[in-house]
Every structure is written in structure tokens, then in C-alpha cells.
Design a protein around this nucleic acid. Structure first.
Length: 510
RNA sequence: GCGAUAGUAGCUCAGUUGGCAGAGCGGCGGCUUCCCAAGCCGCAGGUCGCGGGUUCGAACCCCGUCUAUCGCUCCA
């Protein structure tokens, strides 16, 4: 474990030292769980997004991409369930240091009383045998009625507090009910605090009379509310998908683990609309398809695994995660969810617009079912980056720091290096640089000995080093050195373009 | 939010009776060098996280605060 922690620290410091990721607002002591992408990090991140976008939008005729606004009508978050579902009142027990949801504590308490009623009912059933009338019993038995009255009273106070957002009232209810912490057994509770998942801001230049607007907590809703626009304007036929890459914001209770869980993050989502009844078939299809996408990067399969959800969200009828072996253990990288027709139905209900599709083959209208694939850009970055970073001991006993990024994702595809800084080699190298720079992100470097320059490129993940020597001047060939193997081969300058293109392509997985 | 630990150069860290703020690596300029962190010369870079207090004097002691890491709940 100590080893993994060290490895993780190395990831964080390497990311900073070479310009991949900086803590946000660092000169002002930083801002919690917010990070900036530096000059190389931005390249890597853009390459991840582009790799995803191509594999989704460019390689699938029936998937198109959109870019919806971060600001959306507030009712969208009512419809999606985010306003209600992610407004948790939390309370801590000061003795056990355990945190609970205040509403759950109260609901559990109610459940306990309900159990007592059930016990009374069971006892009575045994006593009366076949003649037992449950309905009559629960409406007449004194003890049951007493319990039921308690439940009704609690429920009344509870729902009033929840509706009025009365946090002090919730706490008082917990105290009045003498609810104790299951761990410490004490009633030493903190105040109830509200944790709202969504960031709120105002739309309108003056605060009074302006509406509260939320920064979107997921990009998916921007796709659902544009379902009809895209389907009609793009003449899309089911099954089809809508993809989107964009920022999302969540006010996490605990934001941790570097860029793994940030308050501002970026998602790559695709919502695939299918015929009702065919959703599980497509769920299986995308589950397999998405894993292939990861494997095509060349990271060994043992670093990935599926994690099927036992407990499903209210809108889903199947869900799985693709987990990755991060330095701190297997964690979710991507989610694939069968979201049923929940979102489109809810938006139909809340907007009053009929979000349906006329299937000409079936000759009928229906609300499509949805398969969602949702992957975190920043998590993919962290997965790829942390897996790529290694300290290698070479045969001669020296070590090198190597960032073996998949070539398709590497910030620089090649470095152009004159072997020495004289004899016209820099000029020749510059000419090669200029001839390739329109097709590839390149770095030119003539400072220091060649070995040192190779190691510098290793540390930032440049897959190829193109070295110009005296022979280059005679026969127009260069040495190409491959990062991971350190093998060199001689390549003609006019072949460089196709050489690089061929080797930078991701692997095809069937 | 609670607890534990930490914060000194870009990175890793040293720095005790409290007395001039340092090293290694890295970076930059130059010399040398025809292939894997070679060598030589020179240079830059720090309000010791921040704010108070104690003291003749604080990186060091005290208080507060911020940030990060690890544990407890939610999630991409």
C-alpha cells in the first residue's frame, strides 16, 4: 500500500513538474478539488476527447454529436430528479464521527415502529387462526393504533420539515425521537447541514427578480431535451445516438484523489435511443463495445473489469461500470446504463411536449428507451497517465523515467533533434520540423547531449525521436528512435509522414 | 464536516539548546560532444503555506487559518 501511495505521489508531482496538471489558483493557496490543465495536459486531454469523439461520431453513421449549453431551464433538474434526489440533509454523530443522512435516520426509525406493528399482527394471526382479519385488527387493536399514531405524527412533522427545508426542525425531530447512533449509541448530534449537489447561480444582471439557474451536474439532460431537435433536423432513425463532451459540476461532499473526483469535471456521454424491448440487447452491445475502446489504447486488459450494479437507480433496468486499476485501487472509469424511457417520459410530462418517435417499420409511436455510456475525461486522463508513468532500470544499471502514453494520445508525436548544434544540422532539422508540423504536434530541441534529450522526451511521453546527423545531409535519411524499446531505425525523410501516421494509429480490437 | 499526518527552490528533501536559508535533481546561457540523464564555465529561482503571538532575534516555540494526503457518506 505504501508503494501505491508513493506511486500516486509520483503521478501528482510528475504531472505538475512537466506541465500536465497544476492545482487551481496555486499562488493564492489553491482552491479545493479544482485543477488546471497545463500545456501538455491540455494536449493529452484534447487527444483523449478527440479519440473518443472519432470512435463515436465519426465511426458510427447513426451517432451525431451536439454541444449543449451548461445553463439550462431550472425545470429540467426537477424533471431529471436532481433537485429532489440530491438534496441530502446530513448529520454527524460527534462521538462515533459517523455521518448519516438525517432523513434516512428518521425513515429507519419509522421502519422500526412498522416492524413492531407487524409483530403485533403476527401474534394476532396465530391467536385467531383462519378467522383473522388483518384490516380489522390494525384498525381496532389499541397497541397497533398507538404505534400508527406515532408514525403518523412523525411523518407529518418529517414531511413538513422536508418541504420547508427546516433543518433545525429535522434535528429536533431526531432528538425528540431519541434516535441514537448505531455505532456509538449516543445522541450527541451535530446540526443538520444541507448538501446540495448542484451549484446555483443567478440569471439576470440584478439579483432581485432573477431566477436561480444551476450549473449542470451531468451533460445527459442537454441531450434529452434536444432529442426531438436532433432527430427531426438530422432525419435520424432509431436506433441512433447523440454524443456530447462537456463540463459538469458537482458540489461533492468529499472531493479527493487528485483529478479523480473534482467539483468541475468533464464528461463524454452518448445516449443511444432504441425500440422499447430491445434495450437489453443494446446494453450488452455497448457494454462490449466500450471495453474494446479502452483496450484499443493498448493498456493490458487485466487493468479493467466490469462491475455490475446490484442496486439499480430508479430509472435504470441494468447498469454496469467499467472499472480501472488506479494507483489507489479499482475505481469506476465509465458507466453504461440502461435508462429505460425515464428521462424522455419525465421531460414529456414536465414540458408538455410529446417526446416520441414514429417508427415507420412498426407503424407506431413510442417513447424510445435509452442506453447511456458515460465516461469521465479527467478519469480517463488519470487512468492513462498513471498507468503510463514508470521508473525503468535499464540493462546498464541506469534508470529512466518513462511516460509510455498510447501514441495516439501523446502530447507530442515526435521530437526533431539535430545530433549536434553545428554543421548545418539544426537548419536541416528545422526544415524537417516545418515539413511535418501541419500533420503532427512536434517539439524541436537542440539543447544538451542527445541522450539527455531522449530522456526528456521519455518523461513527457513523446513516442518518437527523429535525429538528424551528418548522414542526413548526404542521403536524406534520419534515425527514428522508439520510446518504449529505445530501438532505432533509419527512415527516409520523405517516408516520415506515412511512417508516423502508421505507428500512431490505435490498435484495432475485434 | 470530523479525526490523524504534512506544508522550506520547478521536483525530492536537509536544516535544534531559537542566531547569515541549503543540497541533489531539474531549468536557462555558453564551451565540448556523431546516438541514450557524460564533462567544464556561468546564471536564474525562496516573504520557509498565510496571519497573529512569545523573544534582542522565529523556518524552528505558541495560537489561529488555508491547502494537501489518509480514514468515515455520495458519485463520472
Amino acid at each position: 500500500m505504501a508503494n501505491n501511495e508513493d506511486a500516486f505521489k509520483k503521478v501528482v508531482s510528475h504531472a505538475k513538474e512537466y506541465g500536465f496538471i497544476f492545482p487551481s489558483s496555486e499562488i493564492y493557496d489553491g482552491l479545493g478539488a479544482v485543477y488546471d490543465y497545463g500545456q501538455l495536459g491540455t494536449e493529452l486531454k484534447n487527444n483523449i476527447k478527440s479519440y473518443w469523439w472519432k470512435s463515436m461520431v465519426q465511426y458510427h453513421e447513426n451517432i451525431v454529436g451536439i454541444d449543449s449549453a451548461i445553463f439550462m431551464h431550472p425545470k429540467i433538474w426537477k424533471a431529471s430528479g436532481h433537485v429532489d434526489a440530491f438534496n441530502d440533509p446530513l448529520i454527524d454523530n460527534k462521538d462515533s464521527k459517523k455521518r448519516y443522512r438525517a432523513d434516512v435516520l428518521i425513515e429507519d426509525h419509522i421502519a422500526k415502529i412498522e416492524e413492531k406493528i407487524e409483530k403485533e399482527v403476527e401474534k394476532a394471526r396465530k391467536r385467531f387462526g383462519d378467522a383473522f382479519d388483518r384490516d380489522q385488527f390494525v384498525h381496532t387493536n389499541a397497541r397497533v393504533l398507538e404505534h400508527q399514531a406515532k408514525i403518523d405524527d412523525i411523518t407529518r412533522r418529517y414531511s413538513q420539515c422536508m418541504n420547508d427545508n427546516d433543518l433545525a426542525g429535522l434535528r429536533q425531530l431526531i432528538l425528540d425521537l431519541e434516535i441514537v447512533c448505531p455505532i456509538s449509541g449516543t445522541r450527541n448530534w451535530t446540526e443538520v447541514r444541507q448538501f446540495n449537489l448542484m451549484f446555483a447561480t443567478q440569471m439576470g444582471s440584478v439579483s432581485e427578480g432573477s431566477d436561480t439557474i444551476y450549473l449542470r451536474p451531468e451533460t445527459a439532460q442537454g441531450i434529452f431535451v434536444n432529442f426531438l431537435n436532433v432527430q427531426k433536423s438530422g432525419r435520424m432513425k432509431i436506433p441512433f445516438g447523440i454524443a456530447q463532451i462537456g463540463k459538469a459540476f458537482r458540489n461533492e461532499i468529499v472531493a479527493r484523489q487528485f483529478i479523480f473526483r473534482m467539483r468541475e469535471f468533464e464528461q463524454m456521454e452518448m445516449q443511444f435511443f432504441v425500440r422499447p424491448g430491445e434495450e437489453l440487447k443494446w446494453f450488452e452491445y455497448w457494454k462490449a463495445e466500450r471495453l474494446k475502446w479502452h483496450l484499443a489504447l493498448g493498456i493490458p486488459a487485466e487493468n479493467y473489469r466490469y462491475h455490475d450494479h446490484e442496486k439499480l437507480a430508479h430509472y435504470a433496468n441494468a447498469a454496469t461500470d467499467i472499472e480501472f486499476r488506479f494507483p489507489f485501487g479499482f475505481k469506476e472509469l465509465e458507466g453504461i446504463h440502461s435508462r429505460t424511457d425515464f428521462d424522455l417520459s419525465r421531460h414529456s410530462e414536465f414540458s408538455g411536449k410529446k417526446l416520441q418517435y414514429f417508427d415507420s417499420e412498426l407503424g407506431e409511436n413510442y417513447t424510445p428507451y435509452v442506453i447511456e455510456t458515460s465516461i469521465g475525461v479527467d478519469r480517463t486522463f488519470l487512468a492513462v497517465f498513471s498507468h503510463a508513468l514508470k521508473d525503468e532500470t535499464l540493462e546498464d544499471g541506469t534508470t529512466r523515467t518513462l511516460l509510455s502514453l498510447p501514441p495516439v494520445l501523446a502530447p507530442y508525436k515526435a521530437a526533431i533533434l539535430p545530433l549536434v548544434k553545428k554543421d548545418g544540422l539544426p537548419e536541416k532539422a528545422r526544415a524537417i520540423f516545418d515539413s511535418l508540423k501541419h500533420d503532427f504536434m512536434l517539439q524541436y530541441d537542440e539543447k544538451d547531449a542527445i541522450g539527455r534529450r531522449y530522456r526528456r522526451q521519455d518523461a513527457i511521453g513523446t513516442p518518437f525521436c527523429i535525429t538528424v546527423d551528418n548522414d542526413t545531409l548526404d542521403n536524406d535519411t534520419v534515425t527514428v528512435r522508439e520510446r518504449d524499446t529505445m530501438q532505432q531505425e533509419r527512415v527516409a525523410i520523405d517516408q516520415l509522414d506515412s511512417y508516423l501516421h502508421r505507428r500512431i494509429k490505435p490498435i484495432t480490437i475485434d
